[in-house]
Design a binder for these strands. Structure first.
Lengths: 216, 216, 216, 216
DNA sequence: AATGAATGAGGATTCATTCAT
DNA sequence: CATGAATGAATCCTCATTCAT
């Protein structure tokens, strides 16, 4: 009865653990991952998962909201720490790729309204756009960002690039995304600085690596 | 005797009909779409669907293989009909977005090996890379394509861009992808022609359209 | 139009072919065997099978009726060709084991009334009992058959012995049945002739053969 | 506090309940009985059945393994409680008929390897043969069992006799099996004691009872 | 009359969610 | 408050039967 109140932080700990686990599970197993699998890998019982998130949509919503906060934090940190707005923009776009947001791919149809149409998500998106807007405006002022590229374009590009290439071996997929990010950034640049020439990724190399990594 | 032939139950016709329907259904409803729904929208019984594709993986594989053929045809047509390789490349990248390949994004985990690891798919990928390689090489020769952008990069970019943005209203998602394609193409250009200034997509506009289209 | 009437016997040929195939398929694959499998192994289309037997019960009924006729023929032949009634009885019991009637095991519950309750089957059973009755009576008169063993007992024993031991390797199952038949016949004998001593089938031998034949 | 304990949801209890129910259902309705029917008659949901037995084969395997244990217990009890080995043997053979093992007869083809080829079953069979071997040896020593009848013969005979005669009314089928067991035991006897004369089961009586019980 | 593709009702199985312990 | 067994609606898939060719 007179519990000394020591396991009070546990619930919050569990909540975060479940969200982190769910993001990984959805990223790796795709949208077909089951609630039981999430609970099992999080090391909790199914009942505990459902205590925190009353249904599947609720869990997905939490993962999305959490990801949105991470993106906001990423943008804020980039804006604060980078001297040049272009570098902040570049850092943000590159950073988003590390969020394991492949979950986005599992959201479709009517589910979108249920999990991504809440006030919390909408408000988060507004906050993210606000921060990005500051970066984009500053980048325009710097003359580094093409004037016909707006904040909305940045969001669109990020939305496309954060997701992986699940049909490819993980390492190859990550590198292709890395390179695609560079191409997009180059396309956004007002007067692209003559980027130091790199090696192109040839078809032969792609095929070679595809086969090589499939072996491992 | 001279039956007007109105009920021709053609198995091959059915097979193609099912694949086309499945691509649309998966693109619209996500990977959670039921087999019965695919069958219903294709106008056939569940048994017919399963006669052609013994299980769900088999159907997904067929959709992927069919999509690969479409991409190959798209690349070949672009190469043959465009005078400049750069235009062919641009046409290919833009064209892929119209293939409704959102299905690609729902394949993950062990399923990848089952549906995208067959000889048929591997051989198709090789053929696609061959055609693309010719276009990329010619674009290099034209001096239009950055020398550090290879065929593999094109494939990676296409893989990322063909997919939709399911969390956004369809029309908005399509436009964002359109614009992202233009950015990528700009980034690939060796000496980007001074593109006629357009309007940037601002955060305000993005938010406005997001809300507006969600209403409809 | 003026068909010379040459493929008239084909239908009857097909009918017998299907019955024979069905008996084998049910004996080997158990009651779970599908109609398609029967049709395939019989080398006909599903439509042909259904032309002869409008539904599954109809096919099973035909197999049972056919088997009954075979048993009757077996009993008549034994009665006519054997000098001693005991030998005829013995021959009949042994012979039934070769009819592959494992199908009987798949008939249960309400299905029994549908497939084994027809006038044709009932009439066939009466005819079989008549023939057996003659043999049994004669065997009683010979003094070879225990007086407390009647025709009904013979039928019961046959019903139990005609079926195989599906959980054992085929050859071992057949031999066990062979030996069981001998034991039953010995038990029926009024004053059992001192049967030439054989080797008993020991547990070691049973285990050895079970393992050995499972390998092949 | 001192709850009278009336709703104890015990998983182990459920497991045994399901096995018992399945044995009865398969015995009565044949192998075509549905899983839902088993669950319904066991008073549990389909999900509970599948939690305990992931598929149909798993359930059948459990029923077989359980039946094997019952046979072993039957043999051990008979050996311990009977003074004469012959009586133990007789008791075992008669007792097996009461195990409702008709399920055995529905297992065929590839299913045999899946449900009866596990180490658990194999080890159980070995244990059963060991106990039976002791009884058979002792019966040989008593001079009661024919020397050419081994443990393997006993198993074969039991395997054939435990099953019912599904095409006959239940009561008639049971009696026929009863009588067949007596015949087999008589056949196994070294010097059969002059069994008190009983009434033979005549063809007329068989037909009469067949019709009579079909009415009820 | 034969064929085999199409049908769809029904049975097997899964998994989101609930609830007794 | 955690646990994991139980639930049963929903889905996948099969196969007996029909029907267009």
């Amino acid at each position: 009865m007179r519990a000394p109140g020591q396991l009070r932080a546990d619930a919050q700990r569990n909540r975060e653990l479940i969200i982190d686990t769910a993001r990984e599970v959805f990223a790796e197993q795709g949208p077909g991952a089951t609630m039981d699998e999430v609970a099992r890998l999080a090391g909790v019982g199914a009942g505990t998962l459902y205590r925190h998130f009353p249904d599947r949509d609720s869990l997905i919503h939490a993962v999305l909201a959490d990801a949105l906060e991470r993106m906001i934090a990423l943008a804020q940190k980039a804006r604060e720490e980078e001297t040049w707005a272009w570098d902040a923009l570049s850092r943000f776009v590159r950073g988003c790729a590390g969020l394991r947001l492949d979950l986005l791919i599992s959201v479709a149809g009517a589910q979108v309204h249920r999990v991504a149409g809440t006030p919390e998500i909408n408000e988060g998106r507004v906050r993210l756009l606000e921060v990005l807007d500051q970066i984009v405006s500053a980048a325009h002022d710097e003359g580094a960002l093409r004037t016909d590229v707006g904040t909305g374009d940045v969001m669109g590009v990020v939305g496309l690039l954060v997701r992986g290439l699940p049909t490819l071996p993980a390492a190859l997929g990550d590198e292709l995304r890395e390179r695609a990010v560079r191409l997009v950034l180059a396309g956004m640049r007002a007067h692209p600085a003559p980027s130091p020439p790199e090696q192109p990724l040839t078809a032969e190399e792609l095929t070679r690596r595809f086969s090589a990594e499939r072996e491992s």
